[in-house]
Design a protein around this nucleic acid. Sequence first.
DNA 1: TCCTAGTTACGTACGCCGTACGTAGTGGGG
DNA 2: CCCCACTACGTACGGCGTACGTAACTAGGA
Lengths: 245, 245
Amino acid sequence: MAGRTAEPEVIWARPERAGRGPKPAYSRADIAAAAVRIADADGLDAVSMRRVAAEIGCGTMSLYNYVPRKEDLYELMVDLVSAEYDLSGEPSGDWRADMLGLARQARGIMRRHPWVVRVMSTVYGISPNALRCIDWCLACLEGLDVPASTKLELFGMVNGSVMLFVANEQAVAERARSVPWSAEREEAVRGAYLMSQVMTGDYPHLAALYAEGVAPPDDPEATFDRILTRLLDSFDLKSRPDPAR
Amino acid sequence: MAGRTAEPEVIWARPERAGRGPKPAYSRADIAAAAVRIADADGLDAVSMRRVAAEIGCGTMSLYNYVPRKEDLYELMVDLVSAEYDLSGEPSGDWRADMLGLARQARGIMRRHPWVVRVMSTVYGISPNALRCIDWCLACLEGLDVPASTKLELFGMVNGSVMLFVANEQAVAERARSVPWSAEREEAVRGAYLMSQVMTGDYPHLAALYAEGVAPPDDPEATFDRILTRLLDSFDLKSRPDPAR
DNA sequence: TCCTAGTTACGTACGCCGTACGTAGTGGGG
DNA sequence: CCCCACTACGTACGGCGTACGTAACTAGGA
């Protein structure tokens, strides 16, 4: 009678099995896996309560016994793909190498599951696998002499920067894909518009930058490593290997 | 007859007045202002084509003459609030101070218009006011001796980091607001759950961190400045003022 | 000058969505 | 043993984005 109204709470605090009635026919893992399968195949927008319910083979509204709000479904999805982190090895002692490796793994996950980038901003971030990841990160940073709060900042910045980087990669790819004509043509169209704007003279410094020839983009992996290394260095400036540049 | 089908293109490349038929009754500025008003008042989810049309006083489908897809409406909204950047002054010569100032302005805009954070990830980012902002940024970085591509990276990282920071601020605030009971109670509930997890022993380093007492959070402004200063320093390591710490 | 073709304005309708709510069946704890 | 919390699920509501058809209008070419 009461209790039907949605009380906001963390889904991870809600026990999967409530003990009293008939035992649930499905598990959270089943549901999360189904949702991830749909998102991987047809994109995040294809993940609807109806579709997920159909995928696991139950009625739409039955899903609400397992997942009180759709936001919680997202939470399950992110936790599931976060299980893909390989944190089996011990920290190497070189925390920067470890963190770069973690960042590369994060990028890998986001490339395998492009929807993660969009969902992550909605999600609370204390799922079991998120905690596992933070804990491993803290283990790597044991030797780094900064306050605990700074370590958390570091974790946030690394994660966030990977998100920003991948989001940018995806935007470029999406731009090319979502268009009826070819990718080159699309890039040409956008480039032409940008050029026309620069040529108005309203943006002199941008014009100068394009005039002197904008840098040829090196391969994405190198760019990624460079950006992350720079970021990591900024947390440990006193022991930088090469302060000359 | 043809041409009714949506051809993806940048809205900024589409002329506001098409020249042939009757002159439009409204302007893009009107529409953007209406949408921003709604989003500021009732949140981003309240911004629907129907609601915006009602706000400016036209039929729902008339809106599609001005804004071919809803995504383009978002583009207009972001451009409008980007006009709030005050870029009137000349660059001071201290590019780090200028960039920090720009970041503070960005944070101010995102605080006045919380929905911007969510929308920004959808948006292409070559609106007139975005270009104006990039151009001013490049002017500030005139004296910085790094490749042009690095300057663009810097701009991206500063903007992105502000987004991450504000998104985090908003998540904390939202968590407290979206709940029927009080903010303290909510923080207590979440904290209790987090503690219960930490106490399981599955996350030893996190437990150690909490045991030694997690840092008392200083005021947000100081944290913001510290994070951004650290980031900016990382782009100009050879001239850091205090390499000792 | 007039005609016509492209544009604007807008109502209707379709197929989705999240989810409130009611009802029926089930099985474990007191 | 039996009661009631819990599971399962169909129906229904109010919203969404937008395809499409139609009528009014006006600027450019004849």
